[in-house]
Amino acid sequence: MEDQGAEIAQLREWKSQWFPNKGSAVNMKLPGMMQSMKGMSMEKLQSSQGDDFDVMFLDMMIRHHRGALAMAQDAIKKARHPEIVAFSKKVIAQQQEEISTMSRWKKEWKPGTP
């Protein structure tokens, strides 16, 4: 979480440096955005617990991370600033590692076992 906070701060700093007069940009059509949100139900997650919560949380986070991969891969192809390309490569490595970890947990954790 600390890494993500630092990443967000870095992105905000670059945006204010490079594009000081641009407003907020939220574009659900960017690669990965719709994919990362598809099928997510925060209400369903909040109302579950135990094994059901764990599985749903992992499924949602894996989907979210795959969306980040798609967005970062697109940025590598299209970005003008080399900092964005380097940042995107780092995001890809981190997200792939986290997806692997969560996928392993999902296989290892069986319902009813600690």
Score class of each variant (00 low, 15 high):
A68T: 06
P111V: 01
S48W: 01
A93P: 05
R63E: 04
H64E: 07
Q10F: 04
T101F: 00
G67M: 11
D52T: 02
S36P: 10
H81Y: 12
K29I: 02
L11M: 05
K29Y: 04
I92M: 05
D3P: 07
M37I: 14
R104C: 15
I99D: 07
A93Y: 07
D51I: 03
A70M: 13
E43A: 01
M61N: 04
P31M: 02
G32W: 12
I76H: 12
K22C: 03
H64M: 06
E7V: 09
R63V: 13
S36I: 10
S88D: 03
D59W: 01
H81I: 06
S48C: 02
W109M: 03
G5V: 10
E7G: 12
L58I: 11
M28R: 11
A70S: 12
Q4Y: 00
M1Y: 15
W105V: 00
S103P: 06
K44D: 11
G23K: 08
M102T: 04
E98I: 03
S36Q: 09
H64C: 01
L11R: 03
Q94A: 06
D54C: 00
S48F: 01
F87S: 10
V91N: 09
V55C: 02
R12W: 02
M1V: 10
G50K: 14
N27A: 13
E13R: 09
M1A: 11
M56L: 13
K22E: 06
K90D: 10
Q4G: 00
A9F: 06
E2V: 10
A68G: 07
E43F: 01
L58V: 04
R104Y: 12
S16Y: 07
Q10E: 10
R12E: 08
E43C: 00
E7T: 08
S41I: 08
S36R: 05
A25H: 00
Q10K: 04
A72E: 13
A9T: 15
Q4V: 05
E108Q: 00
P114L: 14
Q46L: 06
D74N: 09
Q46M: 15
A9C: 09
